[in-house]
Amino acid sequence: MSRLPQSLAVEDLSAFCRALGRQLGESSPGHLKLMNMLARAGGYQNLQHLRAVQAAAARSRRREQVASGAQAVQAQADHRLLERCLNQFDGQGQLLRWPSRRAVQTLALFALWAELPAGQEMAERQVNAQLNRLHLFDDPATLRRTMISCGLLTRRRDGSGYRRVEQAPPAEAQLLIRALRRRRASAPPPGQAEAQGAGQPAS
């Protein structure tokens, strides 16, 4: 006979550990050790990892007030990864640097992929022009090659044409694309930003 999984929602892990410690009596580990044990049993590296994941999810929920149809995306997303990736982009939604972690690289590339024209073949110079307006470290070749290896972009064998690969982005990429589009929409035009900066008194 198969066993049905039982769920247990704990509002306060610290209070739960105190109650459990009282029941275990003298054999109970210390309070902090018990909390770390329960965090690991829940699939986290330790208590610090649990807190970091929950804090990132809370920040992401505050940023992304979505309709009920998008709530599933929120639930599926790795919010820690999403936050790391968002930190790689500036206030205008441009990629500041090439991330060191592969997972962050791939997620960042989805944000660039989303801005390429769909269903249209592009010459290499056109792809470069699109990528150059989306990043600040002047390396469109690395971006192109990695997008091809990640299955986001295809290229003819003779190099004469590139095309975006149409696909459904993962949950983190969907949230990232929305967040960066909001940044770009709210950012002042480059000329206006420079004029505002020039008008500020020197400190």
Results as ranks from 00 to 15, higher is better:
Ser2Lys: 06
Ser2Val: 03
Arg3Glu: 15
Leu4His: 15
Pro5Lys: 04
Val10Leu: 07
Glu11Ser: 11
Asp12Ser: 11
Leu13Trp: 05
Ala15Glu: 14
Phe16Pro: 08
Cys17Ala: 15
Arg18Ala: 14
Ala19Leu: 09
Leu24Cys: 03
Ser27Asp: 15
Ser27Asn: 07
Ser28Thr: 04
Ser28Tyr: 05
Pro29Glu: 09
Pro29His: 03
Pro29Gly: 06
Gly30Phe: 00
Leu32His: 11
Met35Gln: 15
Met35Arg: 15
Met35Leu: 15
Asn36Arg: 13
Leu38Asn: 12
Ala39Val: 06
Ala39Gly: 12
Ala39Thr: 07
Ala41Gly: 13
Asn46Ala: 07
Leu47Trp: 06
Gln48Gly: 11
His49Phe: 01
Leu50Asp: 09
Arg51Ser: 14
Ala52Trp: 01
Ala56Met: 00
Ala57Arg: 14
Ala58Val: 03
Arg59Met: 03
Ser60Asn: 08
Arg61His: 09
Arg62Asn: 06
Arg62Trp: 01
Glu64Ala: 15
Val66Asn: 09
Ser68Asn: 11
Gly69Glu: 15
Ala72Val: 10
Val73Asn: 06
Val73Thr: 15
Val73Pro: 02
Gln76Leu: 10
Gln76Cys: 04
Ala77Met: 04
Ala77Cys: 07
Arg84Met: 11
Cys85Thr: 15
Cys85His: 04
Gln88Val: 06
Gly91Lys: 04
Gln92Leu: 00
Gln92Phe: 07
Pro99Met: 04
Ala103Glu: 15
Gln105Pro: 07
Thr106Asn: 05
Thr106His: 14
Leu107Trp: 04
Leu107Pro: 12
Leu107Cys: 08
Leu109His: 08
Leu109Thr: 10
Trp113Arg: 11
Trp113Ser: 13
Glu115Pro: 05
Leu116Val: 08
Leu116Ser: 10
Pro117Cys: 04
Gly119Ile: 02
Gln120Tyr: 02
Met122Arg: 10
Met122Leu: 15
Ala123Lys: 12
Gln126Arg: 06
Arg133Gly: 12
Leu136Val: 05
Asp138Gln: 08
Asp139Ser: 05
Pro140Asn: 01
Arg144Cys: 07
Thr146Ile: 00
Thr146His: 05
Ile148Leu: 03
Asp158Ile: 00
Gly161Arg: 13
Arg164Val: 06
Arg164Ala: 08
Val165Phe: 02
Val165Ile: 14
Gln167Leu: 14
Pro170Tyr: 00
Ala173Ile: 08
Leu175Tyr: 06
Ala179Pro: 02
Ala179Ile: 00
Leu180Glu: 06
Pro188Met: 00
Pro190Glu: 03
Gly191Val: 01
Gly191Gln: 09
Gly191Ser: 10
Gln192Met: 10
Ala193Asn: 03
Glu194Leu: 12
Glu194Trp: 02
Gln196Arg: 09
Gln200Lys: 10
